[in-house]
Design a protein around this nucleic acid. Sequence first.
DNA 1: AACGAAATTCAAAGCGCTTTGGATATGTGC
DNA 2: GCACATATCCAAAGCGCTTTGAATTTCGTT
Lengths: 356, 356
Amino acid sequence: MPARKAINLKMLSESLGLSQTTVSRALNGFPEVAEKTRARVVEAAARLNYRPSPSAASLATGKSRMIGHVVSLSEHIMINPHFADFIAGAGEVYGENGYDILLRLASLEEQERIYRDLVDDQRVDGVVVHGPLTGDSRIAILNALGLPFVVHGRSDEEGADYCWMDVNNRRAFHRATNFLLDLGHQRIALINGLETMNFADRRRQGYEAALKEAGIAPDTRLMHSSDMVEPYGYHAMRTLMELAEPPTAIVVASVLPAMGVTRALADLGLRAGEDVSVIAFDDCLSFLQSGCRSGFGGRVPDIPYFTAVRSSIREAGKRVAQMLLDRIDNPHGPLQSELWEADFVIGQTTAPPRRR
Amino acid sequence: MPARKAINLKMLSESLGLSQTTVSRALNGFPEVAEKTRARVVEAAARLNYRPSPSAASLATGKSRMIGHVVSLSEHIMINPHFADFIAGAGEVYGENGYDILLRLASLEEQERIYRDLVDDQRVDGVVVHGPLTGDSRIAILNALGLPFVVHGRSDEEGADYCWMDVNNRRAFHRATNFLLDLGHQRIALINGLETMNFADRRRQGYEAALKEAGIAPDTRLMHSSDMVEPYGYHAMRTLMELAEPPTAIVVASVLPAMGVTRALADLGLRAGEDVSVIAFDDCLSFLQSGCRSGFGGRVPDIPYFTAVRSSIREAGKRVAQMLLDRIDNPHGPLQSELWEADFVIGQTTAPPRRR
DNA sequence: AACGAAATTCAAAGCGCTTTGGATATGTGC
DNA sequence: GCACATATCCAAAGCGCTTTGAATTTCGTT
């Protein structure tokens, strides 16, 4: 076991017969230190298990090597599994680069103050914005504060003055809807996320556009919008099936409500993919493993259950993290943005409409 | 809008005509400062929006006002929704007490080194241990390091030398199994979590004890153990139903695999609560809202879907956080521990066995 | 051999807070 | 009115790092 008691710069430099300046520069890769001495310093630092104190470094430089994730914790939306998977991806990248996550829970209203405090306190070197609304006020605030940030998703239509990474939600839902139309469905319902969220808004646009292109007028009775939890899917589906003319196909914003949909159908003695077609947006949530290898004894289901538009939120977390670190390294570079296309995978929950 | 540019102790004390010492003490509630001056100081601090620099304070005191959560990120177990809900509860308590969460992802093998580094770096004032194994090595390490910590769950049988908060998993599964026995079931399967995890081990003990008390020998063909994800429940259930004598009832370690169970049954044209009884352990995961009010238009389902043993993991997060903060305030006080009993709720998935 | 440039190294001044050991003002008992 | 205790307040020394400005070496040139 290496030496236990913590060692500091002073001790290390004394043991080397060098000044603190030189040792500090040697470790931080400054050019003005001879390679020979640098090697000596690095070796000694490793041998003595020297670790610079983060708070001292932070005090001296103003950098904290922390990334802030402030997630809203309102009555409805708890910290949710989508977020958990996102952070799993992001955390991986942070770890590889010596950054840590500072996690703070707060209602949306508090977030403005929190961002201010985070920069005043120099607690974080950057933040990622989760769940952007259409016209989200956080973006202007962060720009005004000059804190590096990346938005997971988008807030505005055009001329964005911020970094973002998003999935092409509009096209994904357009495509899903088209697929159902091609199968012959005419009454297609939408069980969407909360449409104050920008991503849900775009999804709806894609859905409506596809319908209109097929000459079908969107019917508000077929459209629901709420937090993407399982019981929402259940109740929305029950409601839809009570209509005089129930839908023959449904597009659902997440596998979570999609499971509720399945359960509702089962309660009615119906089956997804036989009586009603279902397409879900699949974020590749790890605990559902819908897209990935199943952990169960090597038995890999080749055909996924849900027909889905799919994009891994975990991969998105990785990419957003990388973009943020890039921006922190180069805060005045051009604003990056990235738009990913979702995959389309055919599962067991879609079929032509039942003949009546 | 209050003054923008950050203000520091020196400026604040000068503007008050007091020394930094006095101002610092006034703000930190030391007794040797006159009430009158304290009031002045507090007022000025608020007015000028003074916020002490965390890194400076941390450097001076060695305290960081951060709580470490290091969660394992192995191939199998991703950061999971159980963790997300736990952290939602804990984060609430931290926030109320001016603490922040430091989140770090790491494999179990790395965790020993990480704990060392965290104390060497003085990055956190305490940590919570997630997912304790039976005989978990992390506990001895943390004790040796002298870092305050609380275990969510337990690691050992008796004579624990650490703080913990756990649910009575053994009794919960004993009770669930008994309930099924009382309904007349004889072949009862167990779809358990990973039994290297201590909680899963205890659950199995409860299950087996109940069977034995009823004079039934546990049958390993009826017992599965793996990560608690949806497809696991699905495949385990399919496997069980292929047995010559399939079970008539199942106890499942989480609602996630329980949903997989339901889906498997549906595939077989069977229904939970009619053809096969299912009891799940319900952690009150927020995105399932199985126990809570449904957010869907006020339509509150009074009868939950799954019959379940239930204990809110979010509440557990709150409690563990509070226990940890208490311990940080009083590191040498007696070791606290707490054992919660799970609720038992009857839903729609249990019934007497089908007569054949 | 001497000189200016380039390459290294260093002493010391912060960064913004807490805390020790005094100093000063206030109050007490006789 | 004086010695002493008590209540307030303060100057200065860290905490461990980075960074400025200067000092010292080293080296190629003429």
